[in-house]
Amino acid sequence: MTNLSLVFKILALADDELILGHRNSEWAGHAPILEEDIAFANLALDELGHAQLWYALYQEFTDTEPDYLVFFRGAADYRNAQFVELPKGDWAFSMLRQYLFDTYESIALPQLVKSSNARIAEIAAKIRPEEMYHLRHTSNWVKRLGLGTAESHRRMQNALDELWAYALQLFVPLSDEQELIDAKVMPDPRVLQAEWESQVVAHLSASGLIVPATREPIATSRTQHTEYLTALLAEMQEVARGEVYGVEW
């Protein structure tokens, strides 16, 4: 096993958390009710905290500062799935995306805790209990909105129709990921996908939603991004790039 396949995987994990966290943070001051404003700010901060743990591990391998990775990389060098970079949409869209991601994490993390790499195992063990709070929150809301009013149901179904094929990208193995699976560093994403599908299909159906038939991810490469990531980064990186040497307050 080369370290290269491992560092690419760690970067993918970190970037997914960062970009999803950033999208969640866009709800601050804009959520439909105050409680959800607070909830999304918490979800955002949690995901940033988790990104930080993965970036710290990436730094141990590559000696690259997390601040550099976050603020001075262009879109082409980001390794997140397109799923997390899509604009926040309406609140149903953001809630459903977070639910699909939380379920994926709730299945992946218990496997990562068993990783043969001790650092990966301990980071997963740290993240796992925090994520239980996320999944409880988002799974309840998916049900409430799916079975709620005609409008909440329509918005959830639209969100699901749009997000489904993007979500499947979370389970597309990276080019050398098989090495990591063989070395028991990473779980097999196909196994995770089977478990994820069985859980989300059951919950979405119970929430009155129809799961799209496709099982083909809309994107398969993490080097390709939508135009939305460029816009996201332009905003997120503006201050850091404007004041490269920092400002003393």
């Binding site: 409680e35 607070i38 909830a39 700010a41 918490n42 979800l43 901060l45 949690d46 905290g49 925090e130 709070y133 409880r136 929150h137």
Partner: peptide, 9 residues
């Protein structure tokens, strides 16, 4: 419970 999320994590 009013909110499972609060002013701090």
């Amino acid at each position: 419970v009013t909110n499972h999320f609060g002013p701090t994590l």
